[in-house]
Amino acid sequence: MNKSKYSLWISLLVIVLLGSMIGAIMVGSVGITPSLIVEVILYKLGILEQTNATNAQQIIILEIRVPRVLLAAIVGASLAICGAAIQALVKNSIADPYILGVSSGASVGATSVILLGTFSFLGMYALSFAAFLGAISAVIIVFFLARVGGRSSMIRLLLSGIAVSMVLSAVTNFMLMMSKEQGGIQAVMHWMLGSLGGAKWSNVWIPFFTFFIVFTLLTLSYRKLNALLLGEETAATLGINIERFRIFIILIVSLLTGVAVAVSGSIGFVGLIVPHIVRMLFGTNYKIVLPLSAIIGAIFIVCADVGARVLIAPEEMPIGIITALCGGPFFIWLLRRQRYAMGEGE
């Protein structure tokens, strides 16, 4: 893809993203017009002197919907770039950010908070903290299981990820089984399927900065990510310290995935399909795969979250159900296409 075509696509997609974010702020139990959104935001930023919006409207826009939409965009972008990076790392196109045990580890943490009240001294941050802790512990276990003689084998990494996920799911299920509380069980289910309902300004910043740092680091490593796809041997002959680079990728990707899961539960499918869509449309070069995945991932989750809010209103639908319902059939269609190589190589 040449430069001008690339910048055209980027600007187009950024416009779509901004459009869908404004749309997402408009939709809800209280209808809000686009001009009102712009007005309130400009007023808040001190650019406008006064506003016609009522206090209630201001609170709905600024304290409820804006943080939620921002968080949706950040989580979508994070999961998409993590998926893209993990797929290059294990050179396997069915890998997603959760393949290293992140979501099952986070589930154990979240379930123990919801059902058993662990970390209750942390108050409202207990859930995110426990989920993050569980996610990172799971990745550490997977990583050390995959190391043999100072080297990590990628197929071992995949398999230990699956094994650790199974064990941790068993732990979660055991806690669910033993629980007598119907409400708690439903809360756990809701959490596991993902929700952006907990969004507020205080939990937007950490995901935002983590995303920003990890995205920058990954984009700066695009040559190495490309080289990894040529195979370990060839990548090494291109002067890459494979072992060190892999540890680096595992570290930053699990950090970002852990943060995303901690604030929104384990939203499925984004990390798997968005990188595929991008590669199918724009090619494999990670220099463009990473930014485009981030934007498309963000659009996808912002729109899916609108669905989550309105489909069975006033109830809220877990967003994971929507991403899987849209993502699954799309992925099947992708699989059936002849032209796309799906990463099989030969």
């Binding site: 050179k91 196109s93 195979g231």
Partner: peptide, 22 residues
């Protein structure tokens, strides 16, 4: 090397450019 498995769709130009990585 003997097996150079190439995954996904790189163009020839992009792939040759990878030789500049070092």
């Amino acid at each position: 090397s003997q097996d150079s498995p190439v995954l996904f769709d790189f163009t020839v130009k992009e792939l040759v450019m990878m030789g500049r990585t070092p």
